[in-house]
Simulated assay, not measured.
Amino acid sequence: MIEKVWGRTALPAPFTAPAGKKIGEIWFEPPPELPQVLVKYLFTSEKLSVQVHPSDADALPGEAGKEECWLVLDAQPGAQLAIGFNRQVSPEQIAAAARDGSIEALLSWHNAQVGDVFFLPAGTVHAIGPGLALVEVQQSSDTTFRLYDYGRPRELHLERALAVAKGVPYPVCHRSSVAARGQTLINADHFRLDRIEGAPDADVSATYFGALLALPLSGEVRARSVQARAGPGECLFAESIEALDFTDAGVTLLTRAK
Rank of each mutant, 00 (worst) to 15 (best):
S45C: 11
K22T: 15
V168E: 14
L156E: 05
V221I: 14
A59M: 08
Q138D: 07
D142L: 07
L81E: 03
S90C: 07
A13N: 09
V204Y: 08
F237H: 11
N187E: 12
A199T: 10
E63K: 03
F15L: 07
V204K: 05
G123W: 00
A105F: 02
P153V: 08
R181A: 14
V168T: 15
P216Y: 03
L11C: 07
G233N: 03
L34M: 12
C173I: 14
L244F: 03
G78W: 12
F43G: 00
E239I: 02
G20F: 06
A19P: 13
G167F: 02
G7S: 10
I241S: 03
L193H: 06
F237V: 09
P12H: 02
L134T: 07
S225N: 12
Y148V: 01
V72K: 06
A257H: 14
V114F: 09
W27T: 07
K258P: 10
P54Q: 11
A57W: 05
T9W: 00
L107W: 01
R256C: 05
S176Y: 03
V137M: 05
G131S: 13
T44A: 06
R192W: 05
S140Y: 14
S177R: 12
L158D: 05
V164C: 01
H110N: 07
V221L: 05
A82R: 01
E136K: 04
A133D: 07
K40C: 09
E234N: 05
K258G: 05
L254F: 04
S45D: 15
K258T: 06
T207G: 11
N86G: 07
L132S: 10
S176Q: 08
A202R: 15
L215M: 12
V114A: 10
L185V: 04
H110G: 07
P232N: 06
S225G: 01
A165F: 09
I103L: 12
L254H: 00
D58I: 02
Q76E: 15
V125G: 00
E239L: 04
A112R: 13
A79G: 13
R195V: 03
G167D: 00
S108D: 15
E3V: 09
Y208W: 10
K47E: 13
P31L: 08
I23Q: 00
S108E: 15
V178E: 13
H190D: 11
L185D: 03
R181G: 10
F15K: 04
F209I: 08
R192F: 10
L132R: 07
S176C: 12
V251F: 02
N111C: 08
N111K: 13
P130N: 13
A98F: 01
L107N: 01
D203T: 15
Q227A: 15
R181I: 06
A17D: 06
A206S: 15
Y150Q: 04
F237T: 11
R8E: 11
V39P: 03
E25L: 12
L73E: 10
G231Y: 04
L244N: 00
K40I: 12
K22V: 11
R175Q: 14
V72M: 04
L132V: 07
L73N: 11
D245P: 06
L106R: 00
L236K: 00
E63T: 01
L71T: 04
A206L: 06
Y150N: 08
P35Q: 14
E67K: 09
G78I: 08
P130E: 13
A97K: 00
S225D: 13
P216A: 04
L193N: 04
T184F: 06
D203C: 08
K166Y: 13
P130F: 11
